[in-house]
């Protein structure tokens, strides 16, 4: 069990700078997701924690001990890749106990542990099969058992479910959650799927350009994004330009009091689902439909109100037409001011 600290980590390659002063503190036993668009440095971060890549500068601390001097095979963080990477010439059993055999653990202990892990992943009858005989989900489970066999302090998952069928992903997520709960192990997962990050993690770290933009619980990162970038990544947004003065936010859509002492130009973030379509009389904004898209579960609408474009969605099964007039109510209390 370990608590991981990365302090001001930089990683540069000849053509680009992948990590630019990345700092993060993962607590003992926490489940943290690293999320962001492709190329933001998530996998590099994971590999640095795993010891497979050395940072150009900065510190990597496990329980406050600097691990950057350690060689690749002394890492206490095991990484499981989306490509699974089981050893093709070893059976399931030998793949799982590989780490134990390397560490010269005694035969009885190896047997005991392997049996336990096989039970945990529910593949006991397949122990003598080779990876070429397994399905994608089975291979992934073996990879995780192989990682767990050496009791790592940290389990690093690099987009573990991206190559699996959608139906399989849910089972695998449940499985990982169980492993996390039963073994109380620190898990750091890289994903580009925001729903997955929210479902699985204690905290989510949004990365952009080799740094962490925001690092918070799923609720906070969704409801209180620290920037437009973060806001946009995690859900549908409406950004309303305006000004704050004397705790009042003025914009083209009207004036609203806000609990904010700071003054100046600001953008108010209102998420699509925080705008409700109401009957005449209950509204605080009126707008005309400029676009609509029917997507089954929801209908996406674009409204124009006093020159401001709003994006909303509704689950009501109502047919809309262009230039319809719609009354909406914005819950300004749920809005977030971004400077």
């Amino acid at each position: 069990m370990a608590d991981i600290k990365l302090i001001s980590v930089y990683k540069r390659y000849e053509t680009e700078s992948v990590l630019n002063g990345l700092s993060i503190h993962v607590n003992n036993g926490e489940y943290v997701s690293l999320i962001g668009v492709s190329g933001c440095g998530k996998t590099t971060t994971l590999k640095i924690i795993a010891g497979l890549i050395k940072p150009c500068s900065g510190q990597v601390l496990f329980n406050n001990i600097n691990t950057s001097k350690l060689s690749e095979n002394e890492s206490r963080a095991v990484i499981v890749d989306q490509n699974v990477l089981l050893f093709p010439h070893m059976t399931v059993e030998r793949n799982i106990n590989f780490g134990l055999r390397i560490r010269r653990v005694c035969k009885e202990k190896i047997k005991e542990k392997t049996e336990k892990l096989l039970k945990m992943i529910q593949l006991s009858e397949h122990k003598n099969k080779f990876p070429s005989e397994l399905s994608g989900g089975q291979m992934q489970r073996v990879a995780i058992a192989r990682a767990m066999a050496i009791d790592p302090e940290v389990l690093l998952l690099d987009e573990p479910f991206s190559k699996l069928d959608i139906s399989l992903r849910e089972d695998m997520r449940k499985f990982i959650k169980e492993v996390h709960e039963n073994h109380k192990i620190t898990i750091i997962m890289v994903t580009h799927d925001k729903e997955e990050a929210f479902l699985m993690s204690d905290r989510v770290a949004f990365m952009d350009n080799g740094r962490i933009e925001q690092y918070d619980t799923p609720e906070n990162i969704y409801r209180r994004p620290s920037s437009m970038k973060v806001a946009r990544f995690f859900g549908h947004c409406n950004f309303i330009e305006g000004k704050v003065e004397n705790s009042v936010f003025t914009s083209k859509l009207g004036n609203y009091s806000v609990d904010e002492k700071k003054e100046g130009k600001a953008t108010l973030l209102i998420r699509s689902e925080q705008i409700k379509i109401v009957n005449e009389g209950e509204q605080n904004i009126t707008g005309t439909v400029t676009d609509y898209r029917y997507a089954g579960e929801k209908t996406y609408l674009k409204l124009d109100s006093n020159g401001v474009t709003l994006r909303i969605h509704t689950i009501e099964d109502v047919k809309y037409r262009l230039r319809d007039t719609i009354h909406i109510k914005i819950d300004y209390k749920k809005g977030v001011l971004l400077w």
Partner: peptide, 12 residues
């Protein structure tokens, strides 16, 4: 990457 995996699992 298989070699990397082995190293990560503790092999020299």
């Amino acid at each position: 990457r298989l070699v990397d995996t082995a190293l990560n699992l503790g092999a020299s």
